[in-house]
Amino acid sequence: MHVLAGRPHPALGSPRTTTDPEKAAMPLPLGGAKGSGMPLAFELLTSVLVGAPIFADFHSGDPKGRKHRQNALLIAVDPAAFGGAEPFAESVEATLATLKTLTPADGAEGVYYPGERSAAVAAERATDGIPVAMKVWKQLTEAADELGVALPALAGERARSTARVVTERPHRYAKQLVSHLGRRAETSWDDERGEGRLQFQDGVGTLTAGDGALLLTVETEGGSPERLEAVVGRHLVRFGTKDELVVEWLRDGGEPGGTYRAE
């Protein structure tokens, strides 16, 4: 990269340039005169046009003009005004497809157009979660503890809640709940063992009819069990309105979950 070597002097006729970083004073624009025109165009569009000029204020002599600022300009272009949106989209696809066929540089994985890798990363993280540095996670954990906010489960971790519902008819309510939720989940019931299973899209629930109580669990991966607590708890107390059933969930780690009772 060529840069100015010190301040230009009128006697020199033109600024001196150098590639020595020790003598550099200011980087020159890429592309020479044409390159210098691009920053000016950007200034006119992103600063002057939006009513917040930066260049003129910076060189005005007013100290306030040198305060750091950032501007932005969004330009929306309607392809239909240039011959139709569909032909334009087809041409874009053809252009990008041709770009992908070019020979990549040595050591490169491939030829990418702007935004392609970012879009792939966004899609991957939407599915697998966002990696968080341990230092940042520690800070988030401390802030959550201070504010009393529950942190979401880490990807790969299973969030689990349990509840013990006191009732004289645990078998009846468990079987009724399994039968009813069969409309929205895959369910099974073992009458001999007094055990049931609820397979939801985002987790699993179990029911065990014990002596004087119905034992419930819900478990989900990479998220809060709150939704499953509500599904199981609300339906159960509705069936047990006469017996005034109460479902109090307790999450792993001792954190209280949702509480459901007949209204």
Rank of each mutant, 00 (worst) to 15 (best):
G156C: 05
T187R: 03
Y173F: 12
E192W: 02
R172A: 11
H171M: 10
V166W: 02
A150P: 13
T208L: 04
L147R: 10
S179Y: 11
T187M: 05
R125A: 11
A150R: 13
A185N: 06
A126H: 09
E192S: 15
R158M: 02
T206L: 06
D190P: 12
R183Q: 05
T206P: 00
T187H: 02
G182H: 02
L140I: 11
A143Y: 01
R158Y: 02
D128R: 12
I130P: 03
L151I: 09
G203F: 06
G203L: 08
L177S: 15
Q139P: 01
Y173A: 09
H171W: 01
A150S: 13
G156I: 04
A163T: 05
A126L: 04
P152L: 10
R160H: 10
T208N: 01
V178W: 00
T208C: 03
G182S: 05
R193W: 00
D211C: 11
G148I: 14
D190R: 14
W137P: 07
R158N: 04
E186D: 06
G182N: 01
Q199W: 09
R184M: 04
R169T: 10
A155E: 05
Y173H: 15
F200S: 04
P131D: 04
E192P: 07
T127N: 04
A144K: 06
G210H: 02
K138A: 09
E146R: 13
G210V: 04
S161Q: 06
W189Y: 07
S188H: 07
E186C: 00
R160V: 11
Q199T: 10
L140V: 14
R169E: 06
D190H: 09
P170I: 10
G129H: 12
Q139H: 10
A144P: 02
E157N: 15
Q139V: 15
R169M: 11
T167N: 09
S179V: 08
K135C: 01
G196D: 01
Q199N: 08
G203P: 04
L151H: 07
L177Y: 06
A153D: 01
V149A: 14
P170W: 07
R197Q: 13
V165L: 03
L140Y: 04
D190A: 15
E192A: 14
R158Q: 07
R197A: 15
A126W: 02
D211P: 04
G156H: 04
A126N: 14
D211V: 08
V165C: 07
S179Q: 07
A155N: 09
V178A: 13
L177N: 15
L154G: 14
R164T: 12
R164P: 00
E192R: 12
H171S: 05
A143C: 01
G212T: 08
R164K: 09
A174Q: 08
R158V: 10
E142Y: 03
V166N: 06
E142C: 03
T141H: 04
D191Y: 06
V166Q: 08
D190E: 14
A185G: 12
V149P: 02
G196K: 05
P170K: 14
E168Y: 05
Q199L: 12
R164L: 03
Q176R: 14
D145E: 11
A209E: 04
L147W: 09
